[in-house]
Each structure stands twice: as structure tokens, then as C-alpha cells.
Design a protein around this nucleic acid. Structure first.
Length: 264
DNA sequence: ATGGCGGGTTCAACCCGA
């Protein structure tokens, strides 16, 4: 396969963030981009097309919403919504084929406050997602599951867990669900590339967390065994977080090479 | 323990995110 750059970006409102999104696409030119938190029904299909991106989106008034963009291509829709959640009104999952890979774009529920019904919903959603992830893994197609997982996998993925101990993102149940995904055979791309480094994809708007680099790693790109051997490079476009009117997330990205990497 | 910021809805003040 040809080299492929795949990114995920929680844009926190596509209407408010369109200039930032277009600037990022122009500069980084991902081949595939998964977006979360569109926060609206309207979607700038035409403006993205003029920027060179075909797109699919699953919107919703006010909240949630996900989209998949493909550079110089039209993503082919596979499904919208998770199996078994057909009655769910929240737009959190979209799946498509683009540039030779299957892409699942997800916005996992935040789950706060916990305990409570929102945390129960998070765990229920996670269970459905784990089931579907197993199906995708077994398909042996090249698959990437990219999005805002709303899980801080380990204490290496947060500046300081102390003030977040009660947060849904750090709960043992949330982390156990994420661990079960990895145990199915998925590779956490950025953690695989940087086993010991502190990488963050989210810095909240409070208390100067961005200037102080007090961040969390909650946006992840998971690769199935068919795709993991092609992982070559990855990172976080932290410059995006420093722009005017920035989202509280920065894009995370990976590059897949045209040949398998050497086994070590 | 709370609220800090910022977006959405809708024009004052809330709900929500993480």
C-alpha cells in the first residue's frame, strides 16, 4: 500500500472551528481525518470539497457528531452508529472505507459525573464498541479505530492524576474497557511508537493548562494486526492547540508505510 | 468542594464538555 497519514481531531464545534480545521488540513494534509464533536446538524461539505476532501458526517443538534474526511477521495460508508444501538439518538460512531483501509471514527461518551447514569451510558457504549471491535478484528481487513475515547489509559497519559482521580476518564472501569480492546489484539499506535514519553492530546481551557502543558492523552488510533506492521510514524499536532480560537484537543496522527516494518 | 473556559441555544442564562 502507499504511505498513508491518518489523523483524529476533536474539533469542539465545526461551525466555530472551520477556519482552524481548514488551516490544519492545508498544513498537515492527512489522507484520512476523523473528526469528533461537530456540535451541529449543518456540515461544510462544499468547503471541505474545495479544500480537497471528500467527507461523510453523522451530525446531531447541539452535541456530539462525527465525520470522516478523505483527501482526494470519497469515503465509502460502511455503517453509522454501533450495532445494537440503533435506538440511540447520540451521534458517536461512523465507519467507512477510504484509501484501502476501514476507518471507524468514534466519540466515546465522557461519562461524567460518575457514578451516575452518564457513567453507566459510557460503560454500556464501551461494551457495544468492544463487541464491534472484535468483529472488525476478526474480519482481517486493515482497520483503524480512531477518535476521542475519553479514556486516560494509564497515569503516564496525564500530567498529574491527583486532581482527576474521581473523573470518569480515569476510572478503573474505563481503563479496564480500554485494556480489553488492546487485549483483543489492537495496537495503541502512539503508545507503541513512544513507550515511555508523555504525549497529550487534550488540555482543558481552565487554569492555564495549555501554557503549562498540563494535558491528557485521550484521543487514540488503534490498529488491528493486519495494519499494525505498517505503522511507521506518529505524533500530535500540538501547534493546533496554540492557535487563536483553538479546540481544547489537538490532532493525533499516524503514518502507515508502504511495506511492513522490520520485526525486532 | 467548587469553578475556572468556551461552544450551543438563543439574547440571559442555562447545559454540557473533560
Amino acid at each position: 500500500m502507499k504511505p498513508l497519514k491518518i489523523a483524529t481531531f476533536n474539533i469542539n464545534g465545526i461551525r466555530a472551528r472551520l477556519p482552524n480545521l481548514l488551516a490544519w488540513l492545508a498544513r498537515e494534509q492527512p489522507d484520512i481525518a476523523c473528526l469528533q464533536e461537530l456540535k451541529g446538524v449543518d456540515f461544510p461539505t462544499q468547503q471541505l470539497a474545495e479544500a480537497g476532501y471528500g467527507s461523510l458526517h453523522l451530525g446531531q443538534a447541539s452535541w456530539n457528531g462525527v465525520a470522516i474526511l478523505a483527501r482526494d477521495a470519497e469515503p465509502l460508508e460502511i455503517r453509522r452508529g454501533l450495532p445494537g444501538m440503533e435506538g440511540d439518538s447520540q451521534s458517536r460512531y461512523l465507519e467507512a472505507a477510504a484509501h484501502g483501509v476501514v476507518v471507524g471514527c468514534l466519540y466515546l461518551p465522557n461519562g461524567n459525573p460518575q457514578p451516575g447514569p452518564k457513567f453507566d451510558y459510557k460503560l454500556a457504549w464501551f461494551e457495544r464498541f468492544i463487541e464491534h471491535a472484535q468483529v472488525l478484528l476478526d474480519s482481517e481487513h486493515p482497520v483503524v479505530l480512531a477518535g476521542d475515547y475519553n479514556v486516560v489509559p494509564t497515569d503516564l497519559d496525564i500530567y498529574n492524576p491527583r486532581s482527576w482521580l474521581k473523573d470518569a476518564l480515569l476510572q478503573p472501569q474505563s481503563r479496564a474497557c480500554y485494556r480489553r480492546l488492546l487485549d483483543q489484539g489492537w495496537t495503541d499506535s502512539l503508545r507503541h511508537l513512544y513507550p515511555d514519553e508523555r504525549l497529550y492530546t487534550f488540555w482543558d481551557y481552565f487554569r492555564e493548562h495549555w501554557p503549562k502543558n498540563s494535558g491528557l492523552r485521550i484521543d487514540h488510533l488503534l490498529l488491528n494486526p493486519a495494519l499494525a506492521p505498517y505503522l511507521k510514524n506518529g505524533g500530535v499536532d500540538a501547534w493546533v492547540r496554540n492557535e487563536a480560537k483553538a479546540s481544547d484537543h489537538a490532532p493525533a496522527w499516524i503514518e502507515l508505510g508502504r511495506s511492513k516494518r522490520k520485526e525486532t
